[in-house]
Design a protein around this nucleic acid. Structure first.
Lengths: 314, 314
DNA sequence: CCTTGACCTGAAACGCGTCCCACAGCTTAC
DNA sequence: GTAAGCTGTGGGACGCGTTTCAGGTCAAGG
């Protein structure tokens, strides 16, 4: 491998001058520049990226910790992060966690070792306080509401849109509203926001027999459909459009009269079913997270969700 | 930032000894090891990852060039790559290309600069010959059949399963078989493999009015449904389960008698519709691609697709 | 008693750019 | 005329580990 010193020696100029040519800086006479460039070409020289990183003190890489690599929620987030990163000259390194706190800590340690310029947790199993403490190692960003903990965060503000959604459901006259939650509301901020909005708008806590916990994908909707049908739900508010589609398909496959439906995430499926949904703008969350990770922005960035009302025809 | 020399000075030992402690190597007396470890703790020392990379000559990072970050095909591939990378101690850096050859070249250049230890093209817009030439810069892997070009490649061997699929269709007695192709068969290996198998098994080239080109997602199936319905298709073989679902939904939404259906990629949707599909094992392709990129394996790795026959009830 | 070799430790080169500082030559300004 | 300032170049320290090689100690084998 030929290096910058080889070029210096071969061209008869100093390393500093070669470096100036390399970085297109002033204070190099055109003749010298040409000559050095020629030598670089001849010797087939390319600067070493790692040496540059070491010398310049940054890697222009952002680590993104992901519980699941291929889940639509994460991929949308990653898409936003990656696009923004590209525009800012950063690259994204995928760090699979599989919800394992041990791995999360390992990545934090890597941040400390300057393997990345910043670290984004799209989800986290470690206590948030511990993550906050790790800010001493470098920029750490979470993608959930950190509550009172002081840490850069980018997340969706779901309150307003959930309220709108339930107000819509109420106004439409539905009486037995089924709820599909991703995880236990004691653990998941998303789930608890849904329950809160329900309680606040409907005026009572959701009934247990109309609440399904642990829905991630289409198949869960299909399973939950049985529960809702058995308990006489006249409406189902799912935590994802594809999940709502699953519910829809359960009723349809069993030739049951369809309940009202509402999804989330504004995917194709809701548009096609013609059901209302909520766009959480995950891509925008990703972009915001990146801006926080690079230090372009600071503090907490809330992205407002949008309730998208659609007439239900099916 | 405290570095290895600080530890050496502070502990009263040499840099070499500290390095030995750091890397858990032999030939350090327990007492010295303890002492140095204590000093490291006191000074809050962590080795610099970039310096290590520079010194050791590798980054343990594999670049993955992606045309689309959030598309199911790519995310499945990335999942396989990422899992395998994790097991081998490598990390994955996402490189968005958006089908832009200029960007692809830029990533190749970064490989040359030793920014990654290897580069995987999940798709490519550059001519394959040019990519093959770039092997001089380091391990480059493609995820498509490279034909006669000599380059490490991991891809699915679709021939056998496509033949099985068409044989199944034929045996079932379908007469007017619609075909949905991702891209023009003159450009896309996938599309041309489908057409070839069709022609070979059915005994004639697919009819133009029963061929849809350019299907990527559910919505395309929905659109294509109109074409097939208008032209009296009694079967549709789509290039994706979700796409097949789109076709299904078109017919259903228009209260038309459903045609036979077959998808690809073995997603939930085909299982739920109960239609046959083909599993291309993209995750396995990803794993294989990683093994090629790290140099653990060489040559070309074909992953056989599996035809999964299911009775069609709907 | 001498050789062999495992065990400890250190000096210094190496991987490779970047950047600050110094200095020479030349021009513009007062 | 001379101080001030810009241009063009070079020297060398710096960022930070890893690794080779040399040298010394000490115990086992012959």
């Amino acid at each position: 491998m030929t290096n910058i010193r080889d070029i210096a020696r071969e061209s008869g100029y100093s390393v500093s001058t070669v470096s100036r040519v390399l970085n297109h800086r002033k204070y190099v006479s055109p003749a010298v520049r040409d000559h050095i460039e020629q030598v670089m070409q001849q010797l087939n020289y390319v600067p070493n990226a790692v040496a540059r990183d070491l010398s310049s003190g940054h890697t222009k890489k952002i680590g993104v910790a992901l519980a699941m690599v291929a889940h639509p929620y994460y991929t949308t987030l990653v898409k936003g992060i990656t696009k923004a990163a590209f525009e800012e000259g950063y690259q994204v390194t995928l760090l699979p966690t599989d919800y394992d706190a041990k791995l999360e800590r390992r990545y934090l340690e890597q941040l400390r070792q300057h393997a990345f310029d910043g670290l984004i947790f799209t989800s986290h199993s470690m206590p948030i306080s511990e993550i906050a403490a790790a800010q001493a190692f470098g920029p750490v960003v979470v993608c959930q509401d950190p509550g009172s903990v002081t840490i850069p965060a980018a997340f969706t503000d779901r309150q307003a849109s959930y309220h709108e959604a339930f107000a819509w459901i109420r106004q439409a006259g539905y009486q037995r509203v089924g709820l599909m939650l991703p995880r236990d509301p004691n653990v998941s901020a998303t789930a608890s926001a849904m329950v809160q909005a329900y309680t606040s708008v409907i005026g009572a806590a959701p009934a247990a027999e109309l609440t399904w916990i642990g829905s991630m994908a289409y198949a869960d909707g299909l399973k939950a459909g049985a529960l809702f049908a058995a308990n006489g739900a006249d409406f189902v508010f799912a935590n994802g459009d594809d999940i709502a589609l699953g519910v829809h398909d359960y009723y349809q496959q069993n030739n049951l009269p369809l309940p009202g439906l509402m999804g989330q995430e504004n995917q194709v499926s809701s548009a096609l079913l013609g059901i209302s949904t909520i766009d959480h703008h995950f891509q925008a969350v990703g972009r915001a997270a990146l801006a926080l990770a690079t230090g372009a922005k600071t503090g907490q960035i809330k992205i407002a969700s949008d309730f998208i009302a659609r007439p239900y025809y099916c």
